[in-house]
């Protein structure tokens, strides 16, 4: 319950996303789950999309930033990446980089 208390305290003082993300341990996991509609569970592609699982974190951060800044051409990803903050990009990239390519159950 400690985490819940910390979280309540964070809400009370009206803190930033970064601080909230620190109090909520599953930020990267939850963001990555949203990506799974196209990229597969835990970023493990099952056919036709770039595989995100186990990619180096720095590489993923750079790609998302490049999509967001319009430097890397894309169909969907420029539009999606503009919806992510720097902190979210960091959290989701960290999560994917920590996954193994073989899906675990």
């Amino acid at each position: 319950m400690k985490a819940a208390t910390r979280f309540a305290a964070a809400i009370l003082v009206g803190v930033s996303f970064a601080a909230l993300a620190q109090t909520y341990p599953n930020m990267g996991r939850d963001l990555a789950a949203a990506c799974a509609i196209c990229h597969g569970t835990s970023g493990v592609n099952t056919g036709g999309m770039p595989n995100l699982a186990a990619q180096p974190k720095d590489y993923l951060v750079r790609q998302l930033q490049d999509f967001r800044d319009g430097k890397r051409p894309a169909t969907v990803m420029q539009q999606i990446s503009k919806g992510l903050t720097d902190e979210q990009i960091d959290a989701v990239a960290a999560y994917f980089s920590a996954q193994t390519v073989r899906e675990t159950r």
């Binding site: 819940a4 309540a8 964070a10 993300a21 909520y24 599953n26 949203a34 509609i37 919806g83």
Partner: peptide, 18 residues
Amino acid sequence: VATMTGQPVNPLPTINNA
């Protein structure tokens, strides 16, 4: 899962549509 295990819920859920 959070509420059933006594953990905080996601303070800022973000999802997408394609």
